[in-house]
C-alpha cells in the first residue's frame, strides 16, 4: 500500500565544515511533507538548501541531524529502484551515444534494455539517440536526463532544475510530460527557478530560504500569504486617488507602472469606483490583481523592496 506522503523530512539539518572558516549551515531544521501523487514544487533562491536537501533524500549527503524518508523508507537503497532522479545538470559519458548511456544505466539498474527505445521516444530524442552525448545541446542533455529518470518507471521522480536550458517548446513539452506523469499517479518533486512554469504545473509547493522552509502547501494556499485580494487601479490623478482610497479604508500602494495596488475584498469594486467618482476621479482601469508565485516567492524570500 502506498504511504500517504512520498517524501517526509523531519528536522533535517546539514552543515558543512569549512577549512579555516566557520561551519556553513546549508539546511537548518527543515520539515517537509510531499504528498503522494501530483507535482510538488521545491523553490528557493540560490544557496537556500534545495540541492542539499535533494542530495540528502538520495543518500548522497549524510544529514547532520534529522531524518529523511522516501516512499516510506529511511534507507534509500531499499527504494532506489522506485525513484528516478536528476541532481543538478544531468551527467553522462560524453564519448558514448545517448542510447548507450541509457543501456549502461539500464544494466546498472537491472532494467530491461527494451525500455530504452521507449523512453527515448517519449522525450523526443529518438533521432539523436545514436549521436555522442558530447554533441548534445543542454536541452538535449536535459531530455536525456528525463529519459534516464523514466527508464526505471519510477513511482517518485526527484528532479533538480529539469527545465534548465530548454527553449519555450521544450519547456512546454517537459511541462506536459511532468503533468502526464503526475496524472499517471506518480509523484513528481521538482526544484526550479522557473516560477511561472512551477505555478502552471504544481499542485503544491514549498519555499526555502536560508535553509528553512518558509511556506509550504497547495499553490492556492501559498499564494494567499501575499495578503489576500487586491485590485489594480489606474486613474488620471494617481497620487490623489491613493490618498482618497487610503482615507476610505482601502490600503493602497504605487505599483510602479502608473497604477495602484489597492487591498480590498472582491466585492469592494463598486465602492472603490464610487469613492473615487465622488472626488471627481474617474477610473481608467479597475481589475482584480493576479497573484503570481513569483511575487509571493520574492516577497517571502525578501528579494523585493
Amino acid at each position: 500500500m502506498r504511504s500517504v506522503n512520498a517524501i517526509e523530512v523531519s528536522s533535517l539539518r546539514k552543515s558543512f565544515r569549512r577549512r579555516f572558516r566557520s561551519e556553513k549551515i546549508a539546511v537548518d531544521g527543515l520539515d517537509l511533507e510531499v504528498p503522494a501523487g501530483g507535482v510538488y514544487g521545491f523553490l528557493g533562491p540560490n544557496g537556500s538548501g534545495k540541492t542539499t536537501t535533494i542530495r540528502c533524500l538520495l543518500g548522497l549527503v549524510r544529514p547532520t541531524d534529522g531524518e529523511c524518508s522516501v516512499l516510506g523508507s529511511t534507507h534509500f537503497p531499499e527504494v532506489v529502484r522506485r525513484v528516478g532522479s536528476i541532481v543538478e545538470t544531468p551527467t553522462f559519458f560524453g564519448g558514448f551515444s545517448g542510447r548507450r548511456n541509457l543501456e549502461l544505466l539500464a544494466q546498472i539498474g537491472e532494467v530491461p534494455r527494451t525500455r530504452v527505445d521507449g523512453v527515448l521516444e517519449r522525450v523526443d530524442l529518438a533521432e539523436a539517440a545514436d549521436d555522442r552525448v558530447r554533441t548534445y545541446s543542454l536541452g538535449m542533455k536535459q531530455r536525456l536526463g528525463m529519459a534516464a529518470v523514466l527508464l526505471k518507471d519510477p513511482e517518485l521522480l526527484v528532479l533538480d532544475e529539469p527545465a534548465n536550458g530548454l527553449d519555450p517548446a521544450g519547456l512546454k513539452e517537459v511541462r506536459d510530460l511532468l503533468r502526464d506523469l503526475a496524472d499517471e499517479g506518480r509523484t513528481v518533486f521538482i526544484s526550479s527557478h522557473l516560477l511561472h512554469e512551477v505555478q502552471l504545473i504544481c499542485d503544491s509547493v514549498a519555499i526555502m530560504s536560508h535553509g528553512r522552509c518558509i511556506a509550504q502547501g497547495p499553490v492556492d494556499e501559498v499564494l494567499q500569504v501575499r495578503g489576500g485580494n487586491a485590485f489594480v487601479v489606474r486613474a488620471p490623478k494617481l497620487r490623489e486617488a491613493k490618498s482618497v482610497l487610503t482615507k476610505a479604508g482601502y490600503p493602497s500602494t504605487f505599483r510602479g507602472d502608473q497604477s495602484l495596488r489597492v487591498v480590498a475584498d472582491v466585492s469592494a469594486a463598486g465602492r472603490i469606483t464610487k469613492t473615487l467618482a465622488e472626488k471627481s476621479i474617474y477610473l481608467t482601469e479597475l481589475r482584480p490583481e493576479e497573484i503570481s508565485l513569483e511575487a509571493v516567492f520574492l516577497e517571502l524570500t525578501g528579494d523585493v523592496s
Binding site: 538520495l58 548522497l60 534509500f76 532506489v80 541532481v87 543538478e88 551527467t91 546498472i108 539498474g109
Partner: peptide, 9 residues
C-alpha cells in the same frame, strides 16, 4: 552522482 542514484551502495 548519476551512478550513485542508480546504485547507492
Amino acid at each position: 552522482t548519476t551512478t550513485l542514484t542508480w546504485e547507492p551502495r
